[in-house]
Amino acid sequence: MLENYISERLKKKDILLMTHIVMGYPNFDDSMAIVEQMVEAGVDLMELQIPFSEPMADGPVILGANQKALDRGARVERCFEFAEEAAARFDIPFLFMTYYNILFKYGVEKFAARMARIGIKGAIVPDLPPEEGKDYLAAMEREGLAPIHIFSPTTTDRRMAFLSSQTRGFVYCMARKGVTGKETSFSSDLGDYLARCRKMTELPLAVGFGVKDRSDVEFLKGKADIAVVGSQTIRLVDEEGIMAAGRFIKKLM
């Protein structure tokens, strides 16, 4: 179970690191090389995003990567093959991140069953709130997979408690409003918000949206359990090539 892995791991480290890649960006070979570097650099979990052309929770950087991966033919079938290989080769939990139509079209139950079969541990589907995702939640439960839901600073306490009850593994806390890949100020407001998240769920907290350097990670220690790095690694790969991903991760820890 994902929760057990996280709590075991937290006995050895103050905070865990979760990274994110868009499968097929810049291409599948490079994606695998990036995963390899990240694992070697010591990341604890990883999100594998199945590209979709309308990723409504993502900002320009990840959106652009989605679009380019799609233009080069990255589709769900190839992503499953990629994920299967990654899960077999590397000894960390991998999660899927994608949008609901991908699951819907594939068949939610089939999708969950195949995730379980190839060793993916959970999924983040930002446009599928629990109210709309009863079949999905049932299928994830049956397969022993973790459906991850998202808190944002505007989420009410009541809603947080409800989302938490529908979540396994950990809760994903957006550090701020808006889409991925923009500036976040790691301030006392964020501290207060994370304290509120902590109160509303017993699950580990992952914090994403705007983590880009070591001081951000340091800030989160004690306040959250997992720091999530998303857009920044894509930016670095774009600017400096795929080898930049591993170097960057090492500097964060």
Binding site: M56, P129, S152, P153, T156
Partner: peptide
């Protein structure tokens, strides 16, 4: 009340947008 016309409609959005 959930915005469904039969099986269609609904609200498939990230949580912060749902609040709005």
């Amino acid at each position: 009340s959930k915005g469904y016309f039969g099986n269609y409609g609904g609200s498939f959005v990230p949580p912060e947008l749902q609040d709005v």
